[in-house]
Design a protein around this nucleic acid. Structure first.
Lengths: 201, 201
DNA sequence: CTCTGGATAGAGCGTTCGTTTTAGTGATTA
DNA sequence: TAATCACTAAAACGAACGCTCTATCCAGAG
């Protein structure tokens, strides 16, 4: 067997959580999709559904981070790098038939009221994505404060644009966000590549 | 009786959908929250759970539009108006204990695969919000194309920032988005208030 | 070989789901 | 008075839920 049963469970759970959310995904469905049995699931995850979800969200969060990292590294210019992120998201979204969006938004929103570990895993993933963008901006000469605020806004906008793209079944929201975010990033730059401060920092 | 049973059902359903999503909200829970009986729910909504959800999402979408309209009208300057939207969302979110976010994101994501009317209602609401922002920008002298692309990005960013704020239990993502979006809007303006075009339009 | 323990397999537990069904209420109309 | 109507009320259906339980498999240690 190529991949371990445990890994297949995590991967299948991540995909299902991404598409159907936490409440909408059943343990039995995860087992079936992973070509595992219910017994195996509870063997590897004695914590039950929530434990599977936490592992799946961590996995999905790292997957998304990898996509983000590659897109950010594909362009030297930070504005173009952000645009590349949007384009990459748009492409994957379209190819999946508009169903594979952010791997954790649905699960995060459903478990907001609760104090489950799922919340913590989602928060951690979001923070790591912010960090990736922020680091890119810092490498491009942005000041710490500007980079952080810009990065969190970029992630927010990509996140929201992806939801809109899914609902609209159209790449347009992501394309628009990519262009506008690039413009926003450029508003911090001067021709020399040396950063300047915004007037609202 | 002050409010009609039907209205109470819609309002209760809207609140529950906002907090728990579509799958996470039961018909019986809606009935209980609305102080109605199951029979009443099926009397007013023969279409069952989905019909209730559609009505609730339309209601929530209009509520959100009202909030947006008021915030946009509270400031003449478009950049400040967008910032006001973010501040208003942050305030309501904090006051609700970080649980009353966007009224339809959760439900929209959960029903993505399906072809239910819920999708359509969500798409319509999102479009109407875009329109509100776009109209404000047009009134401030923006060109049609710029206004549309900027508006959809603003809604995307606010949407995403609200999700991040909920997960982080912090106003910061919304505040950052408000400031950065204001900066983006200002990048289109010259001192006279007459619009100029972006170089990427 | 036997023994052991991780891994697999699936029946079945109690509960809740969305929905249907039937009965009953009270005000309006003929 | 009798009939009709919108509405309320609650019992009960089959299906699916998360989870527990017991039984089985099988590679490696003694």
């Amino acid at each position: 067997m190529q991949t371990s049963t445990r890994d297949r469970i995590v991967v299948a759970a991540a995909r299902l959580l991404q598409r159907q959310g936490y409440v909408g995904t059943g343990i039995k469905q995860i087992a079936q999709e992973a070509q595992a049995t219910l017994g195996s699931v509870y063997h590897f995850f004695p914590g039950g559904k929530e434990a599977v979800a936490v592992a799946a969200i961590k996995h999905g969060g790292e997957d998304f981070a990898t996509l983000l990292r590659k897109a950010l590294e594909s362009e030297e210019d930070p504005a173009e790098a952000v645009n590349a992120c949007a384009r990459q998201l748009a492409e994957e979204l379209r190819e999946s038939g508009w169903i594979d969006g952010c791997p954790l938004t649905a699960a995060a929103l459903e478990t907001l009221g609760t104090d489950s570990e799922i919340q913590q895993a989602c928060a951690e993933a979001l923070r790591s994505w912010d960090q990736l963008v922020s680091d890119k901006l810092l490498r491009c000469g942005f000041r710490t404060q500007s980079a952080r605020e810009l990065a969190t806004t970029i992630i927010s906008a990509l996140e929201g644009a992806e939801v809109k793209a899914q609902v609209d079944r159209s790449e347009e929201p992501l394309q628009a966000a990519g262009r506008q975010l690039a413009r926003l990033v450029r508003s911090y730059e001067v021709g020399t590549g040396v950063s300047v401060d915004g007037d609202d920092v």
